[in-house]
Design a protein around this nucleic acid. Structure first.
Lengths: 128, 128
DNA sequence: ATTATTATACGAATATAATCGTATGTTATA
DNA sequence: TATAACATACGATTATATTCGTATAATAAT
């Protein structure tokens, strides 16, 4: 049983770059580095190297037709979020999604957020 | 700004041992190793070493009054779950708890779980 | 055309995590 | 008492993640 490409867990540094790509869309190393530099002091080649590794792991795809390669996420933000959640649910919540949700809710949620969530619950109930 | 003891993020191996301790209560290395062995092929000294490291990090406390030290979690499961959630929310959900909750809900939740969650939402609404 | 700029590739250094063997000491048992 | 069983401590090894310098090649500027 080999692991599906889509559920490889990105490391912390990798997730940082994925977040940038999801927000910016396809980008070159330089663009990504410029963005990441706004909040961190990370060298250009560090960003390059991480992207190369991510490419090996198939976490990103890249267009090599121009000299400056253009990187893009291999998976959507949604798919990755689901994968990370699934992992956390298994390892810290005994596999129970509702336990995680309840912990998230009683930890920190504003009134507006609660309403948003109630809305979604209603929709889910319709479907079932 | 130094990091609070209670929000040190346990590694994967550490979380495995914490899960056992939360379930079993205070236990010796041998007891923990026996339990972990039921699902993994991990050496005794590996478990010992990880517990020693966890003790240095203050993830566990230990009673050294007997030859076989007795280990116990330094923090409750709830506190640790909240800490892990907070971390994931920051790194993968742009800091939005409700985004995480909604992703969790639309990913995989049974009808019973949805009802449990609705119940909690009602209680939260009462308070606010 | 020469030089400066900009790109990738690659390897090495560093940090952390996870693994386990061996040394050493303590307790139980034969 | 001698020896087997069991405990912690410690160091070494391996794996993975992160960092960045340097080599090399392509493009742009002078």
């Amino acid at each position: 049983m080999s692991r599906d490409k889509s559920d490889i867990k990105p490391t912390e540094a990798e997730l940082t770059l994925l977040n940038i790509l999801w927000k910016m869309g396809p980008a070159t190393v330089r663009q990504i580095h410029e963005t990441v530099s706004q909040t961190q002091k990370t060298g250009y080649t560090t960003v390059l190297k991480i992207l190369q590794i991510m490419h090996e792991k198939a976490l990103v795809i890249r267009d090599e037709s121009n000299r400056a390669h253009v990187y893009a996420p291999a998976n959507s933000e949604m798919v990755t979020q689901s994968s990370l959640l699934k992992d956390l649910i298994l390892k810290a919540f005994g596999g129970s999604t509702s336990k995680l949700v309840m912990r998230a809710l009683d930890t920190s949620t504003s009134k507006e957020e609660i309403e948003d969530i109630r809305q979604l619950l209603n929709e889910l109930e319709q479907q079932s």
